[in-house]
Computed example of a mutant assay.
Amino acid sequence: LSVLLFCVAVHAQKQRYQNKEYGFAMDEPEGWLWANNDDLKQNLGKLDLDNAKLLKIILDHKGSLLLMSYYKYDPMTKAGLIPAVQVNVREMRNKDFSIFKSYIVKSANSFKDLYPDYEFIDEPKEVRVNRIKSVYFSGKFTMKTQMGEIYRVRSRTYVIPHGDFYFQIVLTDGVVTEDCSKLFEDLIDSIKIKK
């Protein structure tokens, strides 16, 4: 009986994404597809990187480096709305939180330039992620596919400062269909950031 219980406990354990170089960890969405640059992940692990070198890597990637992304379905085989999770690390230009937050609010408002019907579900506000003062906002907008199908899309964005960098987590699902709210809440709750 104890062997059986041990097997069940091992099977129930979630897979975690960890990036030791930038100090970020989060549960992986079970059954979703990994869509990352594995070469970058392998190369980062081989290098002895201090903060200056990590910052240079971000700057070499035009100020934003994709750490991870997951898709619920394969975009090559499924048309339409595909829920996604994406984590980028970016350069932290100002460490004063109020100035940083105002920059994020301005950036959030620029979604209205990209999507004319974009509207906030949650206006940008201060939240805590892994006990770190962060910024969160969510919105909804209409997306039209090349085939002319129309979808109502919801995006949730968390922005977490961390020393010389900040993490931007974007969680995308549907307003009507493909609601991933519970999964996304669990993923955010699972975030750990190394001090």
Rank of each mutant, 00 (worst) to 15 (best):
D39C: 05
F6K: 12
V10R: 06
D50N: 11
A9S: 10
K20W: 03
I121V: 11
V89E: 14
K192M: 01
G31M: 07
D60C: 11
V176C: 03
I121A: 02
K56T: 13
S181Q: 11
N43C: 01
N43S: 11
N88T: 15
G174D: 03
Y17C: 02
F111N: 14
A108P: 09
V129G: 01
L81E: 03
P124I: 10
F137M: 08
C180F: 00
S190M: 03
N36E: 14
D96H: 15
P124L: 15
V87T: 06
I132A: 10
I57V: 13
M92H: 15
D74E: 10
Q15Y: 02
V3D: 05
D122S: 14
R154A: 01
R152L: 11
S190V: 00
V89F: 12
N109S: 15
R16W: 11
T145W: 03
I121K: 05
R128P: 00
E126G: 08
F111I: 07
G148Y: 10
D179C: 05
L33P: 00
D179G: 05
S2F: 09
G31D: 06
V135N: 10
K182N: 10
F100C: 13
G63Y: 13
N37A: 14
G63V: 13
L114K: 15
W32V: 01
V3M: 04
V3E: 07
S98Q: 14
E185G: 09
R128Y: 10
K182S: 12
Y158D: 10
T145F: 07
N36D: 15
N19M: 04
E126L: 08
Y136H: 15
